[in-house]
Nucleic acid binder design. Structure first.
Lengths: 270, 270
DNA sequence: AAATCCGGTTTATAATGATAAATAGGATGA
DNA sequence: TCATCCTATTTATCATTATAAACCGGATTT
């Protein structure tokens, strides 16, 4: 009759015993927080990390993989290779957020309900901070959108350029959280919106023209540093766009975002 | 509208050639999207996945690790074990988002700028959908917050409960995107806010009382199904809270969120 | 002299096999 | 009936080896 109490009884829900690899991941994350490691800083190489945490190759590999998926590091081979801390890319964050939203059936109206609230405030807040280059970029963007052929591929392209306008405004805003929220919405619209093939291309062209008109007015007001007018114009713009999207039967394609889609897209300027 | 997903385009310059493990991850994500696998569905076991993609154990392990970090699957041992699709938990998404914001220096004012815009709309939109249980929960939450001793630990606890009030409202809103945005903000406030130790506890208590007052009014208006009044009250509530937070010198602790923090957090009322 | 090629070195990436840990479900025993 | 043990199954970790990618520096070519 043996008396064995070594086995740790399962604490109901309280403290989950993590896997070794996950513990290593945590240690490294704490290291980043505590030593305030900035982008560009390098982690020790795999061999040394193995030694440091007394784990095997595959375990340290899983830990690094976890950090890589989280967008906190990149790993490269070669003599100067290994893990390097990076600033988490927006696209990666968008991808991970879309994993969450994938199961939620988000409609276009849902997105615009938030966009209507955020964009006017974002735009108004950006006005005092817009550089001359950014103001130029806004105006140049409008020219790019101007000629509207009815060819489907051009229509899609125009919608992309429309969103670039909003990204330029976002880039100038000093509030990183608001900026993030709006950039996220822009990214969702850019990548996930699909329109019914039924609607005639003329309707799409009308949508594009209406956008250009508003963008031109907004750019003008922005150049005049009139924050309140920009806010009002953007509010009207969002209101109208929301209506158009509804008429054109725009929908969000509920799918997971793949790494291969995240090709480095052209960043306006910042 | 069809969506072309090319597997491995041979564009040599632009696209980065992915690692084998990442390719497997993509294949599995495509599988989830295409076969519309819902939470609960199981992936084949490791051995079979190895066979399926013709890769070694370590490769398939890395791919599964990636999906696990993304919150798309959980993996368990034993018979009937293996990878199971799950709905990405909000907490996981919050963790990944915080990785992004970690490098951005978000201030309390930044968060509240967005919160001021979103919460009134969220609350108003929730009103028609609040169940009797949820209305009861709102009122019960207020009672919980009522007695305010000046003990620091109780003050923190009260702020947590305050946020629960807003979570209840969020839960009733039919817009998953707006809901998500507000829940995210609540989670940030819950986990990352730190107050200066300088400010006297009386000030904190005053803050708590002011919150309770507004919550009581909001709950009353919600029971009366008066959406517009709820919107107006919430707007005033946010305005005031924003001022209090500024006075109390509330700050966001810029750090990375660890898995071990994401233990099932205390749900005060159930 | 400048650019290019070409190996060697360093490092991650992938494959394989062996052992440990966790779990479910059935068998065992009071 | 109930708790315990047993065992088969599957992941988790470790260890080792082999392969591939990136970089460095010297040799070769232009």
């Amino acid at each position: 009759m043996t008396l064995e109490l070594e086995k740790m009884p399962k604490q109901p829900g309280r403290l989950k015993i993590q896997k070794r690899a996950d513990l290593v991941t945590e240690e490294i994350k704490q290291l980043i927080t505590q030593k305030n490691l900035r982008p560009g800083a390098k982690l020790p190489m795999e061999k040394e990390l193995q030694r440091l945490f007394s784990v095997s190759k595959s375990t340290i590999r899983e830990a690094l993989k976890s950090l890589e998926v989280q967008g906190l590091i990149t790993v490269s081979t070669g003599p100067t290779g290994g893990a390097t801390i990076i600033e988490v890319p927006l696209e990666r964050t968008f991808q991970l957020l879309q994993n969450y939203l994938f199961f939620k059936e988000v409609s276009m109206e849902d997105i615009y309900a938030a966009r209507r609230l955020l964009e006017p405030e974002l735009a108004a807040g950006s006005v005092p901070f817009l550089s001359d280059e950014q103001l130029d970029a806004l105006e140049h963007n409008i020219e790019t959108c101007q000629p509207t052929s009815h060819e489907p591929s051009r229509l899609v392209r125009q919608r992309q350029a429309d969103l670039d306008f909003h990204d330029i405004l976002a880039a100038a805003n000093p509030n990183p959280f608001l900026r993030f929220a709006c950039e996220l919405i822009n990214e969702m619209l850019r990548r996930l919106v699909v329109f019914s093939t039924q609607t005639p291309p003329e309707e799409h062209a009308k949508f594009g023209c209406a956008n250009v008109k508003f963008h031109a007015e907004i750019a003008k007001a922005a150049r005049a540093r009139d924050s309140e007018r920009v806010r009002a114009l953007m509010r009207a713009h969002m209101e109208e766009a929301s209506q158009y999207v509804k008429r054109l039967d725009g929908r969000l394609d509920g799918r997971l975002i793949l790494d291969s889609e995240m090709a480095p897209r052209l960043r306006p300027l910042s």
